[in-house]
Amino acid sequence: MTTDTSAASAAAAAAPAPTGTAATAQRILRVGPVNPQVARTLDEEFDALVLPSDPAERAAFLAEQAGGIRIAVCSGRVGVDTELMRSLPALEAIINFGVGYDATDVAQAAERGIPLSNTPDVLNDCVADTALALYLDTLRQVSAADRFVRAGRWAAGEGFPLTARASGRTVGILGLGRIGTAIAQRLEAFGCRIHYHNRSERPESGYTYHRTVRELAEAVDVLVVAASGGPDSVGIVGAAELAALGPQGHLVNIARGTVVDEDALVAALTEGTIAGAGLDVYEREPQVPEALFGLENVVMLPHVGSGTRETRADMAELVLSNLRRYLADGTLLTPIS
């Protein structure tokens, strides 16, 4: 599959190089690990500061440098949290690598008038592809079958258990945004009927809308979580929603681990409340509940939804285009509305 790079290319074309406002180490701060291309450019082109990870070193660093830092560049996994943002009195903008930004204190940023950008659109296809891979693996137990063969159990004459049909299912999409829509379009090719829950109804989609997450779960065979992270979506798939999905139901989560109550999910998988799950995200990454390791009805990925070379290059390009644009005229190409 060829990744569509038009969004990143257009963003780069629209972003002029800084003129007369060359960045200095007192202006840009890298927070946590970021994409290697971004890290290299921040160092070589912008001479950016790097926030120390050691608490004592960080405190000394901020005491000396915080007053001059205007721009923070971070990843969706680390972000600019409440304490750090309060430590940066001159902060003007936050540039985020990734679509998700729930690790950043968005409320404080809004109060202070600090704009925040992310990297939408360029990763839609790869994340949707990952969701489809998890959907197929969870229902057809591809990974479990692979382990079965490698363990010599097939050669020993043992039969692999029957699995669930993946085509023709009723699938619920929790969060019918850009990524959710891309997932739905892929599932339509498998003859699936699409239902959804969203903050607002989207009649133009032609899909079946449900007013609550629980009503959606009751109506579908598979629930695919594609909702945005953040305080408003924490735990919106809990024990009641998993019970509504039922013992033949499956869950796929490529959104944020916080959207699903992880303790309730572990209980549902171990007790048979639901049939299985495919997970790319977790509540306390990179920590994964040990109770899941011995289960054959769960497929676990290490948060690699957008993890292709092509998509990460597009995301890096968009991050740097946002930075250059802000330095040039004080605006962002892809601000969070």
Rank of each mutant, 00 (worst) to 15 (best):
P52C: 02
S53Q: 04
S53Y: 01
D54V: 11
A56M: 06
E57H: 02
E57T: 01
R58A: 01
R58T: 00
F61P: 01
F61L: 09
F61H: 08
A63L: 02
A63C: 01
A63D: 14
E64V: 01
Q65R: 13
Q65A: 06
A66K: 00
A66C: 00
G67M: 02
G67H: 03
G67T: 00
G67A: 03
G68H: 01
G68N: 00
G68L: 00
I69M: 10
I69D: 03
I69N: 03
R70M: 01
R70Q: 15
I71A: 12
I71G: 10
A72Y: 07
A72Q: 05
A72D: 05
A72V: 05
V73L: 11
C74M: 06
C74R: 09
S75H: 03
G76V: 01
R77E: 10
R77M: 11
V78I: 15
G79M: 06
G79N: 04
G79H: 05
V80E: 14
D81L: 02
T82M: 14
E83G: 02
E83N: 05
E83M: 04
L84P: 03
R86W: 08
S87K: 06
L88P: 02
L88Q: 08
L91C: 08
L91R: 09
L91D: 08
L91Q: 11
E92W: 05
A93I: 11
A93E: 14
A93N: 14
I95W: 08
N96V: 10
F97I: 02
F97Y: 15
F97T: 00
G98Y: 12
G98C: 06
G98P: 04
Y101H: 13
D102K: 12
A103G: 00
D105N: 13
D105M: 13
Q108E: 15
Q108W: 08
Q108T: 11
Q108F: 06
A109G: 13
A110L: 10
A110D: 11
E111Q: 14
E111N: 10
E111I: 04
R112S: 08
R112I: 03
R112K: 12
G113P: 04
I114V: 15
P115R: 14
L116A: 14
S117H: 09
T119G: 01
T119R: 04
P120V: 03
P120F: 11
P120N: 06
D121I: 15
V122F: 15
V122W: 15
L123M: 12
L123Y: 07
L123F: 12
N124M: 05
N124T: 15
C126P: 00
C126M: 08
A128M: 12
T130Q: 14
T130C: 13
